[in-house]
Simulated scan of single mutants.
Amino acid sequence: MDATALLVGNYLHSYFESPAAHEAFIEEHKDEIKSSRKPYKLLKPYQQAEMMIKTLDEDETFQQFYQGDKEVIVTGKIEGVPWKGKIDCLNLDNNYFIDLKTTRDLHMKYWDTDEHKYVPFVTKYNYQLQMAVYRELIKQTFGIECTPYIVGVTKQDPPDKAVLSIPDEQLDWALDDVKAGQQHILDVRHGKAEPTRCEQCDYCRSTKTLGDIISIEDLVD
């Protein structure tokens, strides 16, 4: 993952966690987020993050909705395998939790080579899998089943925003995918198996060697 994109996301998350958390984040990462020259302004990606924060902070519906405990640690086991997560905003009184996501454009389409159709950014980055795991861990930690929501905010000028839900069947399918695939992931981590290559992710690009010649007709799935 792009380190700057990760820091931008954490910059936004820390703001909505608490003023103290945001100040601590800025202090810890000041060399990465501010110019090295006077007047030491925020670099452009973090100026953009400030716009994203502003568009949510000034939205009355968001302020009413984003209520609950922040950055809650949840733990549990999925078919015997230990898992741990951190919930951005957990509202046990009203049985829901919220995850903040930044993205380029809420309406951008991505081609899914497995499903052979266009999908939204949530599906592209497997956020439904993350939400399914979080829902299960919350249930194991607190004994309460909560509905996940994603608050998406874009890097556009001005930013767009939306509260997004995920159909229950997609959450169920995602949890089934975790159960089906986690043993292979553990085997890869422990050196017992080789990863399944996709030839498109960061790992595959960094370890790729030239092999067969590819026709230009095969570049786009």
Rank of each mutant, 00 (worst) to 15 (best):
M1Q: 09
T4D: 07
L7E: 12
L7F: 03
N10L: 09
Y11R: 10
S14A: 04
S14D: 02
S14E: 03
E23C: 09
E28V: 13
K30R: 12
D31W: 08
D31Q: 06
I33E: 01
I33H: 02
R37L: 13
P39E: 06
Y40S: 04
Y40C: 13
K44Y: 12
Q47C: 07
T55C: 07
L56Q: 02
E58D: 08
E58M: 09
T61M: 06
Q63N: 14
Q64S: 10
F65K: 02
F65D: 02
Y66G: 15
G68M: 01
E71F: 11
E71L: 08
T75V: 15
T75N: 03
G76Q: 00
G76H: 02
I78Q: 00
E79Y: 00
E79K: 02
P82R: 02
K84F: 06
G85A: 05
K86H: 05
D88R: 01
C89T: 13
N91Q: 01
Y96P: 14
Y96R: 07
F97M: 08
D99G: 13
D99S: 13
L100A: 15
L100N: 13
T102S: 14
R104Y: 03
D105R: 09
D105F: 05
L106P: 14
M108H: 04
K109E: 02
Y110R: 04
Y110D: 11
Y110N: 11
H116Q: 13
V119Y: 00
F121Q: 08
T123Q: 15
Y127N: 13
Y127W: 15
Y127G: 07
Q128N: 10
Q130I: 13
M131N: 05
V133W: 00
Y134P: 14
R135P: 07
I138M: 02
T141Y: 01
F142S: 05
I144G: 07
E145I: 08
T147Y: 01
P148W: 05
Y149N: 15
V151W: 04
V153K: 02
P158M: 08
P158Q: 03
P159E: 02
K161D: 06
S165Q: 08
P167H: 09
P167C: 04
L171G: 12
A174Q: 00
D176Q: 01
D177W: 05
Q182A: 08
D187S: 07
V188W: 00
R189A: 09
G191V: 06
A193M: 05
P195N: 05
E199N: 09
Q200F: 15
Q200S: 11
D202C: 15
Y203I: 14
R205V: 12
R205N: 06
K208W: 10
T209D: 06
D212E: 13
D218F: 05
V220M: 10
V220G: 14
D221E: 06
